[in-house]
């Protein structure tokens, strides 16, 4: 299973290239154009990461993060969620790059194959920037009455965080 999974990028690349070649798609052109778009994305991401990495480093070094984690630990532990993911869960609905920074910091500090690192990765991969997305859609549509949209979306986030923690504990705990 994990053999196949680790081959994912190569397999996809091979299969799509074959398809592209026989359907007259400019294979090399598409790949380089796509990579260029990735580079543009990175250029947008880097300023956000710079600011947020600095903020998270300050949070950690000032001892505030530890304090907050200790405060949230009794509740989170009872729910079966590692308390280290508290900051990630707080930032996730608000800011995509904030959550990416928090998750990356956890993966770096605890190790990519550790339980905390994996839980952070699954939480990040299985959720979206709820409040930001809501704001974008409703303001674009000119609708003010969001009514039950935000509670329902936050309920989905809660289920996502809990199930991520539980699944990771089951698989790698």
């Amino acid at each position: 299973m994990s053999e196949v999974l680790s081959l994912t990028p190569a397999l996809l690349l091979g299969a799509l290239s074959l398809w592209a070649f026989f359907h007259g798609v400019d294979l090399y052109g598409a790949l380089t154009e796509g990579a260029k778009k990735g580079l543009c994305l990175m250029a947008e991401l880097l300023p956000a990461l710079t600011v947020l990495f600095a903020v998270i480093a300050l949070l950690r070094a000032s001892g505030l993060l530890e304090l907050l984690e200790r405060m949230a630990a009794p509740l989170l532990r009872r729910l079966g969620v590692p308390e280290e993911t508290g900051l990630l869960m707080l930032l996730r609905p608000l800011s995509g790059s904030g959550a990416l920074s928090a998750a990356s910091e956890l993966i770096k500090t605890h190790g990519a194959d550790s339980l905390v690192g994996r839980t952070a990765a699954v939480m990040l991969g299985a959720s979206e920037t709820t409040l930001y997305v809501t704001a974008v859609y409703f303001s674009a549509a000119g609708v003010r009455d969001t009514r039950w949209a935000v509670p329902a979306a936050l309920c989905a986030d809660l289920v996502c965080f809990l199930s991520s923690a539980w699944i990771c504990r089951l698989l790698w705990g």
Partner: peptide, 28 residues
Amino acid sequence: VRSSLGASSPFDIVPAVLLSSLLSVLAG
């Protein structure tokens, strides 16, 4: 991110991510 931070198999979390997102979509 996982592969750049030294994961032994960056994609081994995929089944967990899919299951967790499915549950959260259903909850939503």
